[in-house]
Amino acid sequence: MEKIFKGAAIFLDRSDINTDEIIPAKYLTEVTKEALKPYLLEDLKLDGFDPKGEKLKNARVVVSRQNFGCGSSREHAPWVFEVNGVHTIIAESYARIFRQNMFNGGMLAIELPKADIDALFAMDAEGDVSIAVDVDAQVITARCGADERKFNFAISEFDKALVKAGGWVEFADARY
């Protein structure tokens, strides 16, 4: 599946969002990624959040706080984002396996400093935010109405190569 790193953003204002909240364990008996699609963030504990709402349905980018994707190693968590068209997550920090699973699938788990995350949340308070990621230039462009802001981000050469290749299977298959 072609990965798209831009579009409407949804802001999840909480740290430690875990993989059980992203995709509950009872759905791990599914054997296809597509079957997970209806259950994205079904158990997320966050005031005002509606897992069946238009905001999540239209989202292509997720912005959140610290230690995103903590909990189990299930790759079902990145997959349920993937099949719902969310290929970019921007947060202050991640749990190790979730972060690796995102890049292994050719998707982005971008880390920004707290000040930049705060600035993005401040834009969200003003209205709908759209975000576009330029992986080569390592720049995030966020727009809210006429307001436009740019943020530089760091990404390892390996992670960038995984995104370029389309994922770890493609990278490894071409190289080993």
Partner: peptide, 18 residues
């Protein structure tokens, strides 16, 4: 080490992990 399914898949196919 515990890994996700993609790391497992490459392990099965190529016998390597990063």
């Amino acid at each position: 080490a515990g890994v996700g399914t993609t790391d497992l898949e490459v392990g099965i196919l190529k016998g390597v992990c990063a």
